[in-house]
Amino acid sequence: MRAPGPADLGECALITAATNHLLAASGEDGGFPIPSMGEFFPAPIFFEGTIFEFNRMTLVRLVATIVLVALFWVVTNRARLVPGRAQNIAEMGLDFVRVNIAEEILGKQHARPFIPLLTTMFFAIFALNITGVIPFLNIASTSVVAVPMLLAVASFVAFIYAGIKAHGAVGYLRTTLFPSGVPWPIYIILAPIELLSTFVLRPATLTIRLMANMLAGHLLLVLFFGMTHWLFLEADGALKGVGVITLGAAIAFTVFEIFISALQAYIFTLLTAVYINLSQEAH
């Protein structure tokens, strides 16, 4: 019925617009609120119809980007040899990507050229995911397919580049499609499966995993908050008590959603590193 949180708290025209839209989209009027896919396709705000079309989702995405860039800009400008607290936290985050993801999987030498890519992926996904639980923003930009698709394309290009650099173009195809240690008749069925799995399924599953997780999380949050609101305000007597349960569930699920945001960022980055590693080593 409503986007969780903001309609209760603020009078932002954009968010009220989305709320109205959601009402119209679901067609409910005083009935039990059901979130629908319309959540993820808000009305355009500026430049409608052109390539620069701008809607609430894009706005949230840009806000998240600006906040992330600003935070890191400030911390980096004040970076000293002996770190202060903010710098310590930033360094913890950067070291997490560098040591636990890149160097653990790729090894110290091979990791170096890919660390910027992996760092960007991790922090971008985390920042764009976490807006799903932040009040006034309340939608994760990674829940529509554009951002995950772009990131998956970046990952795809990265691991193919790594493979071609390590083996040469023909050599890479050979080691991928015809892994060693297998008797040759099996190649007839193995090669198409490997082809599909490596060049189609990898980017596709990266995209869909991220998108589906964020989509499902957002729908559940909307469901719980909406139900709580409806139960508290518009239900009859005894059902109000159920509102408490749904509120509890909503809070628990918010915490879970924060964890999932971080976990999805970690998994995306980790799988990219793993794919790069698999392309680089000879099977």
């Binding site: 653990e104 999987i105 995993r209 998994i267 793993v274 698999l278």
Partner: peptide, 23 residues
């Protein structure tokens, strides 16, 4: 560490099927 990495690789392949179902 190595076991965790293998787990994630396997998880990526297995989860693919679930995601294909959703899609």
């Amino acid at each position: 560490g190595q076991l965790r990495i293998n787990m994630f690789i396997g998880m990526a392949l297995v989860e693919a099927l679930g995601l294909i179902g959703l899609v």
